[in-house]
Design a protein around this nucleic acid. Structure first.
Lengths: 132, 132
DNA sequence: CAGTATCCTGGACGATACTG
DNA sequence: CAGTATCGTCCAGGATACTG
């Protein structure tokens, strides 16, 4: 087998691993929830308030998946009323810098993206009109 | 209005912007495609080979969305056979460091995540068995 | 408070066939 | 080569109601 082929295989392997990881955390809520756990342990309800628009069901699902993957720990305090706290594990916390960097990127570029999108749609509309 | 309420509103605003941005780029392929454009302009077919498992249709959709949002530029060379190259714009390139950091995280922690998941499923199975 | 349980819908995604 | 068109599936995610 040629060296180039081997390199391509390795590259594909890496790509697959990265893709699978991104599939885990690349849904609508996961990164946002992890980001909101930046400041320390959070209770379910507080977390729900901090993540704008998330439903109870989706928050439950998201933290369950994060717990399953070992990014978040779940601590139940046997009180009445019950109290549950979620906290990033070490693995989860290592993901924090890239997430925060992406959040910064989003805040810094949201208007530029918006504008690009508007311009794209407009020229697409003109093209469609020209066809008629 | 109290200061605390204002802060919470700002936080929710930021969260919404970030969420919308993550919705754009947080699908199955987008981050991966951006990452694969790290090394410079790429032709459609080459890109398809570098992104393991993507279908032609999804690659087309993904680069279209990236172009619309202004993260990727699309250049058509009027040759026969036709040649099209995709390249990151400045905005897109600014997203590269966080993406590559997340990719590194994925490569470094994939086995730990795998193990955590296995353990979680096993104890969940035991709990289910105990209920019977 | 912190969840389940259930139902439902839109759209993400894949497979296949066709084309300038 | 770099797409478009069409069809079909699946499930993420929302809404609502209920509970230890």
């Amino acid at each position: 087998m040629a060296m180039r082929e081997m390199q391509e295989m390795c590259e594909a392997q890496r790509g697959t691993i990265v893709r699978e990881a991104l599939e885990r955390i690349g849904d609508k809520w996961t990164l946002l929830v992890v980001g909101m756990l930046e400041t320390g342990p959070q209770r379910f309800t507080v977390l729900r308030q901090r993540v704008p628009g998330i439903s109870q069901r989706m928050l439950t699902r998201t933290v369950r998946h994060l717990e399953r993957d070992g990014l978040v720990s779940r601590t139940v305090y046997s009180e009445i009323p019950p109290r549950v706290e979620y906290e990033l594990t070490d693995v989860g916390r290592e993901l924090l810098p890239p997430i925060l960097a992406m959040a910064d990127w989003a805040l810094a570029n949201s208007d530029r993206v918006e504008e690009s999108r508007r311009a794209y749609d407009e020229s697409a509309a003109q093209l469609a009109a020209a066809k008629q």
